[in-house]
Simulated assay, not measured.
Amino acid sequence: MTNTPPFPYSPITERPSIEWPGGATVAVYVGLNVEHFLVDRPSTSIWPGTADLVPDPLNYGWRDYGARVGIWRTIESLDRHGIRPSVLLNSMVPAEYPQIIRAGLERDWAWLAHGRTNSALHADLPPDEERRVLADIVDTIADAVGRRPRGWMGPGLTETARTPHLLAELGLEYVLDWTNDDQPYEFAVPGMLSVPYSVELNDLLLFGKGTPGPEFVRIVRDQFDQLRNDAHPSGRVLALALHPFVIGQPFRARYLDEALAYLAAQPEAWLTTSDEIAAHYRRAISSTPHQPR
């Protein structure tokens, strides 16, 4: 264990300038959470009054809507605007919902490891067990999608103090768990990056607080507009976090479509994946002297 975070403090005003491809100022990616929930374990709930019951039809059914219905509505919107999501994939998903994997393979989605199931956080694991668990997660996803994931986000954005080190040993290159920046940055762990993710620009948190659909669209627009303003002279990242059991509800579909249409229409947006953001940043830092801008 350690009493310091796995990265140094770095104010955004004192870094080399980042230039995204094609003159873009904001790299935009959709973090699409594709998850499996256990029927006999509590997890994310819309109403906590029944969350500890087994079975819990109210909350389990709400979550299960995502894999049965919501994901397909969300895919239609992503396809309509030419957006390849970065899929945060529980390793239990391929066995449970192979149709979703096939849909993603047809569209060449980017695949990140997202634990086994979102019914269990990635915490309090002894070292040998964590090494084994992570290897199993990565291998299972690689077998299902034909390539090893390059990124990690823990279920509930959870890690142990060893997780970045163990992920690096397995060949992973970046994590999304530390949501503390608008740019990628280097971890203290050799070879490991942090790529921005958001618990604010996140359908689960926004709609969970009662945000109406038109306000969601305005928030996405405001996020992009401010990041574009900030991005002179150094590029920024907009991460839009989506959960099919939330954004895939029928009455929210038009608002996701409006938000994606706005992002896709911006000439200064690089619509990309977290994999490509990490790879571009890694190439940039390998060729740029580390002098304050």
Rank of each mutant, 00 (worst) to 15 (best):
Q249M: 10
D143P: 01
M192H: 07
I83Y: 11
E159H: 15
R68M: 04
L170V: 09
V195T: 05
N118T: 13
A264K: 05
V145Q: 06
D52F: 14
D108I: 01
S45N: 14
H280D: 15
T272H: 06
S287K: 14
Y197T: 00
I141F: 09
L78C: 02
L32E: 04
F245M: 07
P6R: 00
E130P: 00
W62Y: 14
T4M: 01
Y29E: 03
A278R: 06
A264Q: 01
L256I: 07
W47Y: 14
H232R: 15
F224E: 05
V237W: 05
R147L: 09
G146I: 02
P184V: 09
G23R: 05
G61N: 06
E96Q: 15
I101D: 04
T272A: 01
E130A: 00
E159W: 12
Y281H: 09
Q291K: 11
R236T: 11
R282I: 01
V34N: 12
E35D: 13
H280I: 10
G208H: 08
L176H: 15
R218T: 13
A241G: 11
Y197K: 02
D177A: 00
I285D: 04
G156C: 05
S274M: 08
I141K: 06
Q291P: 00
I101Q: 01
T211H: 10
R63M: 08
Y60M: 10
R228M: 05
G208L: 01
H280W: 11
A279E: 15
L166H: 12
V138R: 08
N59Y: 03
R41N: 04
E19Y: 13
L205K: 13
H81M: 08
P94Q: 03
A120S: 12
H114R: 10
R236Y: 09
E200Q: 12
W20G: 00
R41A: 09
T163M: 04
T50M: 13
V133F: 12
W109C: 00
V30T: 09
R41C: 02
A231V: 06
E276P: 06
L78E: 07
L193P: 01
P42W: 12
I141A: 08
I100H: 11
T2K: 02
E14C: 04
Y60D: 11
W270D: 00
P48S: 13
A264H: 03
D225K: 07
E35G: 07
G191R: 03
P21V: 05
I101R: 02
P85A: 07
G154W: 06
H165P: 01
A67K: 14
D203N: 10
L256Q: 04
I18H: 09
P292L: 10
P214F: 10
T288G: 01
G210Y: 08
E200P: 00
R131F: 01
V220E: 01
G146V: 02
W72H: 12
H280N: 13
G235N: 08
L134I: 04
P250R: 08
L53M: 14
L38W: 12
P289Y: 11
T273D: 05
T117N: 11
T140C: 03
G248P: 05
Y9D: 10
M192D: 02
A269Y: 12
S91A: 12
Y281P: 03
R63V: 01
S194C: 15
N59K: 03
D257Q: 08
F7C: 00
D222E: 14
D182R: 03
F187M: 13
L125N: 11
P250K: 02
Q183Y: 10
G82A: 06
Y255E: 04
T160V: 03
